[in-house]
Design a protein around this nucleic acid. Sequence first.
DNA 1: AGAGCTACTTCAAGCGATTTAGTTGGCCTA
DNA 2: TAGGCCAACTAAATCGCTTGAAGTAGCTCT
Lengths: 372, 372
Amino acid sequence: MSPRHPVDNSAHTVHKPARTTLKTLANHLELSPTTVSFVISGSPFAETIAKSTRERIWAAAEKLNYRPNVFARYLHTKRTYSVAVLVPDVGDEYSAALIGGIENCLSKKGFFYFVVSHRGAPDLLRMSPDTLLDRGVEGMIFINTPLNRALPVPIVAICDITEGPGITRIKIDNGKAATLAVDHLLELGHRDIAVLKGPEGNGDTDDRWGQFHKTFQRRGIKIRPENTVHLGVYPACNEKTMAENGYDAAQKLLERKRMFTALVAFNDASAMGAIRALSDAGLRVPEDVSVMGFDDIPQSLFTVPRLTTIRQPLSYMGELAANTLLEKISGNNGVPKILKIQPELVVRETTAPNSHLSHKNSAAGKTSRRSR
Amino acid sequence: MSPRHPVDNSAHTVHKPARTTLKTLANHLELSPTTVSFVISGSPFAETIAKSTRERIWAAAEKLNYRPNVFARYLHTKRTYSVAVLVPDVGDEYSAALIGGIENCLSKKGFFYFVVSHRGAPDLLRMSPDTLLDRGVEGMIFINTPLNRALPVPIVAICDITEGPGITRIKIDNGKAATLAVDHLLELGHRDIAVLKGPEGNGDTDDRWGQFHKTFQRRGIKIRPENTVHLGVYPACNEKTMAENGYDAAQKLLERKRMFTALVAFNDASAMGAIRALSDAGLRVPEDVSVMGFDDIPQSLFTVPRLTTIRQPLSYMGELAANTLLEKISGNNGVPKILKIQPELVVRETTAPNSHLSHKNSAAGKTSRRSR
DNA sequence: AGAGCTACTTCAAGCGATTTAGTTGGCCTA
DNA sequence: TAGGCCAACTAAATCGCTTGAAGTAGCTCT
């Protein structure tokens, strides 16, 4: 069906009962296809058809189980009531939560959606928009997915790396998030803080990192470069799960023998990986190191210890994205370019007062967090 | 576009550049649409067209950026190169992992897919197959989703509750899985074992439960009813995450004051919830209670402690499902009714020797596992 | 020179709907 | 009784493509 498929009629199914067509239905009713079409399609002309006839038509449609052919209809209406969702990977918790919200909204409105996971593959990224347009999607939601050209349908993006005219962006307020996270750690007495910077190419990485940086500066806290590590380079980091990336990153941090009493992860999944690495190194969370996640994915409530995190209302953001997209599709040009979402601090069990406050920077502190 | 949508042309986009049509292209080339169609669609007649003409056509198609209209083409070919995936919830780890595998295979073959999460909602379950057929899907993959009628397209099911003629089922060998799990626990000296039975209505619940039951019996182990708990009733249990269900179930178990030194969960997510509940009750895993998961979702490698589990190769199963479906779509009637998948025991850190062996069933043992 | 090939290319119908521009017949009015 | 109007319906074009049947032009063959 797409250009890449040569025409091929060999598909075979056991028993393909011929679907009732408009013509069949019209013949059965001894009416013209026009009349039947008017009432079935809900055309304004339907009102010029006698009520009794309308009822006859609906009854017959029901009886013959008539279902309009979506493809034939498209030829005139140019509408498909479907959209596309592009994500790095269907499977990751962040995307999955968003998609859940998106579907919630779409299914209410009778829209269907195609999912494309590109995993950072350049060809897919380049060609997907076109193949999706071929399939008639009326709009697209880009989750953490780059784009750098105009598309003839409305777009809503959840991230910063989707470029194009007229797109609407749904963004978490990273400034607020950073303040929430940093102040929480400061209140607990942490000064030596490690930061897991998001993967290169991720749509939130730069803004988030910039905002944290700014916030630390504003609070007079110096983040040493040795206490900072990238979660990986895009798209290589897509080959691994975020938890793996977090694990590796935390290990790198530990190898550097630089002390830190708290760690801010890029998201919950990398936080979990990091906690795993800390545990493997014999460090206790939160007694030896406090860890902050970001996102508040459902699992965060059930980890041991439970994850302290900055909450993004992912499901809501998904719904908002879908709603906004439908709004744009239906012609509303007044949709703002940016919809900012407020994050929330969720204090659970992975952060605790800095136990090294008394002997800050002492050798003892170092070794206790450095065994193995 | 679907019957529920009255025809509506109000959709509006900023700038809809007219797509090149076959006719335009043919005019431009001063050829008939037929000729152009032959070569573009890869019809067998293409070979009767002069090579030089073919090249001209391709060049012009490239230049005018011609893309065949998928909907017009469908009218003749009846092919859409798309399938549907029905799941209880896109977001849960089990479905997400399967979908990942499915997508992997489909995207290689140029197929697209619609996802429908029904969350157990009866209307969606009843109507989805038809609305999906309206959209021309050539086959469907049912993940843990009930069905009880024939459909005019091939179906592959991952679970037991999808009924219908000619469907192919991909099933984990629960008998083998049970043997693996039970023997592992027996070798560790566990005799008092609690079991989290899957939610009612889940496609694996009955078979899995039956097989575990049988295996325990065969090994001469009695499972007390008080050490057994259902993860919830379908579809109510769908409102909660599996982790939540596992948490609640483990709490129920603990309230019963019946002792157990090991717990077999229905899946990894419920195992994580259960571990959370055990921890909250002051019990250590695996020192006080060993816990076995099922699935081996990616997170299992990063929990503290790492989860011992029975591995299902979810991504592979997804790929197999998609591959099998495409096979059936292309007319292969020789596909087996059941494809059995072999599970694998993955021993990690949530299982350990029974520390109560010496004072088995003693009061001491009981209280040590019952504090708070 | 006419029949028969071969190598290319096109005509025109049709897929299953929507939609524009009518037609038909009854009734009312002047 | 002609004209106009209205309610109720329809013929035929069209959307963008595929496809079976039908040309056409140039060559060879006898």
